Measured scan of single mutants.
Amino acid sequence: ELSWTAEAEKMLGKVPFFVRKKVRKNTDNYAREIGEPVVTADVFRKAKEHLG
């Protein structure tokens, strides 16, 4: 699991709890794919757009 900024964690907190774990995993995987060592708010937004 990658490191997350406080802002990205806050955004994740707005995701319904029953899918939060999956969203975190998918976002981590997306960040790795694009070469990001940390999940930022920008990476979170891009993952959301990319993953739907």
Rank of each mutant, 00 (worst) to 15 (best):
Glu1Ala: 12
Glu1Lys: 12
Glu1Ile: 10
Glu1Pro: 15
Glu1Tyr: 10
Leu2Phe: 05
Ser3Met: 14
Ser3Phe: 14
Ser3Thr: 14
Ser3Val: 15
Ser3His: 13
Ser3Cys: 12
Ser3Ile: 14
Trp4Ser: 00
Trp4Cys: 00
Trp4Glu: 00
Thr5Ser: 08
Thr5Arg: 02
Thr5Asp: 07
Ala6Leu: 11
Ala6Tyr: 09
Ala6Asp: 13
Ala6Cys: 09
Glu7Phe: 04
Glu7Gly: 06
Glu7Arg: 07
Glu7Thr: 06
Ala8Gln: 00
Ala8Val: 02
Ala8Phe: 01
Ala8Met: 00
Ala8Pro: 00
Ala8Asp: 00
Glu9Ala: 07
Glu9Lys: 12
Lys10Val: 10
Lys10Tyr: 13
Lys10Thr: 10
Lys10Pro: 00
Lys10Ser: 11
Met11Thr: 03
Leu12Glu: 00
Gly13Pro: 05
Gly13Asp: 13
Gly13Ala: 15
Gly13Lys: 15
Lys14Ser: 08
Lys14Met: 11
Lys14Trp: 07
Val15Ser: 04
Val15Arg: 03
Val15Asp: 04
Pro16Ala: 05
Pro16Thr: 03
Pro16Gly: 04
Pro16Ser: 05
Phe17Lys: 11
Phe17Gln: 10
Phe17Asp: 10
Phe17Leu: 14
Phe17Trp: 14
Phe17Val: 11
Phe18Ala: 14
Phe18Arg: 12
Val19Ser: 14
Val19Pro: 03
Arg20Trp: 03
Arg20Thr: 03
Arg20Ser: 04
Lys21Met: 13
Lys21Gly: 14
Lys21Cys: 14
Lys21Tyr: 09
Lys21Gln: 15
Lys22Gln: 14
Lys22Glu: 13
Lys22Ser: 12
Lys22Arg: 12
Lys22Asn: 10
Lys22Trp: 15
Val23Gln: 04
Val23Gly: 01
Arg24Pro: 00
Arg24Ile: 04
Arg24Met: 05
Lys25Pro: 01
Lys25Asn: 11
Asn26Arg: 13
Asn26Leu: 15
Asn26Thr: 12
Asn26His: 15
Asn26Met: 15
Asn26Cys: 14
Thr27Met: 08
Thr27Gln: 01
Thr27Ile: 15
Thr27His: 02
Asp28Tyr: 03
Asp28Arg: 03
Asp28Asn: 10
Asp28Ser: 07
Asp28Gln: 07
Asp28Ala: 07
Asp28Pro: 00
Asn29Trp: 11
Asn29Gln: 13
Asn29Met: 13
Asn29Asp: 13
Asn29Tyr: 08
Tyr30Glu: 01
Tyr30Ile: 03
Tyr30Lys: 02
Tyr30Leu: 04
Ala31Trp: 01
Ala31Gln: 00
Ala31Pro: 00
Arg32Ile: 08
Arg32His: 06
Arg32Gln: 07
Arg32Thr: 06
Arg32Ser: 05
Glu33Lys: 10
Glu33Gly: 09
Glu33His: 10
Glu33Thr: 10
Glu33Phe: 11
Ile34Val: 09
Ile34Phe: 09
Ile34Gln: 10
Ile34Trp: 09
Gly35Glu: 05
Gly35Ile: 02
Gly35His: 06
Glu36Tyr: 09
Glu36Phe: 07
Pro37Gly: 09
Pro37Lys: 14
Pro37Ser: 13
Val38Trp: 06
Val38Glu: 07
Val38Thr: 07
Val39Gln: 00
Thr40Ser: 06
Thr40Phe: 01
Thr40Ile: 01
Ala41His: 04
Ala41Leu: 09
Ala41Gln: 06
Ala41Glu: 08
Ala41Lys: 07
Asp42Trp: 06
Asp42Leu: 06
Val43Leu: 08
Val43Pro: 01
Val43Trp: 02
Val43Tyr: 02
Phe44Met: 05
Phe44Pro: 01
Phe44Gln: 01
Phe44Thr: 02
Phe44Cys: 02
Arg45Glu: 10
Arg45Tyr: 07
Arg45Val: 12
Arg45Gln: 12
Arg45Ile: 12
Lys46Phe: 05
Lys46His: 08
Lys46Glu: 10
Lys46Ser: 08
Lys46Gly: 07
Ala47Thr: 04
Ala47Phe: 12
Ala47Leu: 05
Lys48Leu: 15
Lys48Ile: 15
Glu49Gln: 11
Glu49Ala: 13
Glu49Ser: 10
Glu49Leu: 12
Glu49Asp: 10
Glu49Thr: 10
Glu49Pro: 05
Glu49Phe: 10
His50Met: 11
His50Trp: 11
His50Ile: 11
His50Lys: 10
Leu51Arg: 14
Leu51Gln: 09
Leu51Tyr: 15
Leu51Ser: 09
Leu51Thr: 08
Leu51Asn: 09
Gly52Ile: 13
Gly52Glu: 12
